[in-house]
Design a protein around this nucleic acid. Structure first.
Lengths: 397, 397
DNA sequence: TTGTCAATAAATCAATTTCGTTGATTTATA
DNA sequence: TATAAATCAACGAAATTGATTTATTGACAA
């Protein structure tokens, strides 16, 4: 028998759900007047009035915009996200650099710190996160400090398995260590899923409810969005697209990753967005092989899940990413795909910053996103509760 | 921006959701007393009393069981599904035979009719469904007739693509034709997804919230269950595991299907569950190749979705199915799977009848299952509403 | 061994709270 | 003056809490 069951619905959770829904609509659509919110949610105008009144009182929405005139009738008063409504820390653990950002409720990066390294080491990362957080938080007023929702961490899983130098990660629980050291709620998810979450929350293009997302950096990963929700999976390892098996007994990230390109070049590529100036033959081969494995993984995932869109992004110059998108779309069309409707293939909109932004999106999502079904009782103040599961300690990552 | 949004929550939908949740708990766990329901749902005892009172009055639950004594305190009064609470028609369109069943609310097959054919043809199937339905319904009382929720159809998609003889299916909409001819709500889904739904609803073993399901018949297909819900996908083509690309430029069903085995043998295999008496060499080769592609597809899907279990079932003798399960588990363990936790592999519990049962499960699910989030307003009587989307006409199947 | 009674837990009754809806009203614009 | 946004006031649905009823077990005394 199926053990866990969808949660029962209780009236208290209604309000929380509807509050989150309204915040999410405004996040994706930009400032919206109450009438449009009522229309989009299906709620009555009165309910929207009540909910937004509370959200404004809580400092999460801002009614200070210009009234929009033009049509007959009373002018529209658009409600916008209040940037100071909540603040979030995001930590990315990367192969070559760790980054810490402070992001506001509107999704803007307010502050940033970085720590380059030969290989990420748990002690160094922890110390960096603690000291850099202290720096960032020192610049805040007491009121802002009270609105810090927590920290999210974007990190590859099974780090110790990827290189001998990263063995010290085995047995470490960075989430718990930082939660203790900072006395904050801390979330940790796969870096690919985080990048995907960032695209979903902060991406600048319209997205369907369901899509597959690849993120190519030194490790290749990804994420899956189904019915408008990021799939994490029971052991938090969904979207492990780098481990997707591809023809030739390999996995996707053996072929399609920046590491592969670097080892073929014999040199490290620059971290910032300069052009990469690659030898045409090397470039062509990498593109072809990457497109081959990406299209294979995409087609398999689409067969299993029925997805209309595949998004490809990565820590690379936009031109290279776009070439990869084109090559993958072409490879996909050339593959036998009987019984499957080919998805659109498109570039992501966030590039190099996706994982770090996605890390900060974790506390944002836990506190302010509609969430699956109703899961947690409504807390005294919105943003302290978690609709999804709170990050457990003892996770086997 | 994401277009479709999670529906707003309104009090009316609470009751519908909670009613469905309670029915689902009893369906999976067997008869349960009110106290256990309150415990499992998190609802108060009072709420459970109110909800079950209505469900009993509606004829969906039966409080007639034996009181269970043994512990201190008032004895438990288990509530069971009322078999006559609702009735469902299920139609399977198979490669060699079509089947129509009448299934009751408890999941028991009450009546069955079959139509063998060289190839399924739309006109013949429609006529069979109409006349056989009339026969089955003729045996019902007026009261039972009023409790018929509708018909579900389990059919492969893109039938016209699989053999020249099935070209007449192009442009046909069997769902709409039967809805009109029978004046009943009719649902249609991929036969693999239906088999998966049947395992989920009527399977005799405990299942996790998330699993991948393969169903091997003449066409190979499957289904995906995520967070306790069957994934259908925006174009209803999720779980198309037969179309999963596998090494060698093939798709899964080019290798792992009963058709492949038959064409290798040069003869048709019996439809009922006699032993198949296959030459050992042929058997071994088919098992090895099938296990290879099944494990490839399973590993890819697990990488994308993080699933703890893979279920394999099919229209074949139990011994063969079990051998396939063992071979697939072994192939899986022998594949490179860095970064992915291998899933358990297990045989399904329904075998040859899975698709037909799953067809009947479609109206059951639409009327009585918890459904994603709240989607449709509560109807005058439970079972006439649809929480998920009603089957549209004009679908591109 | 048997009869009585307290302890226990299920199920129900009554009162209350949360939250959304409906219909009337106010407000600002073309 | 017509129109549409936004709010006010009254109402209804569904859940919760705390008190009450009901049926059983187990202990203790006759």
């Amino acid at each position: 028998m199926t053990n866990a069951m969808p949660a029962a619905a209780v009236p208290q959770r209604l309000r929380s759900h509807n509050e989150r829904l309204i915040l999410w609509l405004i996040r994706r659509n930009g400032p919206m007047p109450r009438a449009a919110l009522a229309q989009a949610t299906g709620l009555s105008a009165q309910a929207v009035t009540n909910i937004t009144r509370e959200l404004i009182a809580d400092g999460l929405l801002d009614a200070g915009g210009e009234r929009q005139r033009g049509k007959v009738g009373q002018p529209l008063l658009p409600l916008a996200l209040a940037p100071d409504g909540a603040l979030f820390l995001g930590l990315k653990v990367g192969r070559r650099v760790a980054e810490l950002v402070l992001v506001d409720f509107a999704g803007q990066i307010r502050q940033m710190r970085a720590l380059p390294h030969a290989f990420p080491q748990p002690d160094a990362i922890r110390d960096f996160a603690v000291s850099a957080s202290a720096e960032l938080l020192a610049g805040l007023t007491e009121a802002q400090r009270a609105r810090l929702s927590g920290m999210g961490i974007a990190s590859p899983f099974y780090l110790w398995d990827w290189a001998r130098e990263m063995a010290p990660w085995r047995g470490r629980d960075l989430r718990q260590e930082l939660a203790q050291a900072l006395d904050l709620p801390v979330w940790l998810e796969n870096d690919g899923s985080c990048a995907c979450a960032a695209e979903m929350m902060f991406g600048t293009e319209e997205l369907p409810e369901d899509f597959l997302y690849f993120y190519l950096a030194h490790f290749g990963g990804g994420g899956v969005v189904l019915d408008g929700r990021l799939r994490l999976g029971p052991s938090r390892n969904a979207g492990a697209m780098g481990s997707f098996p591809v023809p030739g007994g390999q996995q996707l990230l053996d072929v399609a990753s920046v590491s592969t390109l670097e080892s073929r070049l014999g040199r490290e590529l620059p971290l910032e967005d300069e052009a990469w100036d690659l030898p045409p033959a090397t470039l062509r081969q990498w593109l072809d092989e990457s497109a081959r494995v990406l299209s294979h993984a995409a087609l398999g995932t689409v067969a299993a899940l029925d997805l209309p869109l595949v998004v490809i992004d990565g820590a690379m110059p936009a031109a290279l990413r776009d070439a990869l998108v084109a090559a993958t779309a072409e490879a996909l069309a050339g593959t036998r795909h009987h019984g499957v409707t080919l998805p659109e293939v498109r570039a992501g909109t966030l590039g190099r910053r996706a994982r770090t932004l996605g890390a900060a999106a974790l506390p944002l999502g836990a506190g302010f996103m509609p969430g699956g079904t109703f899961a947690a009782p409504r807390p005294p103040r919105l943003g302290q509760e978690t609709e999804g599961a709170q990050p457990r300690s003892g996770d086997d990552r």
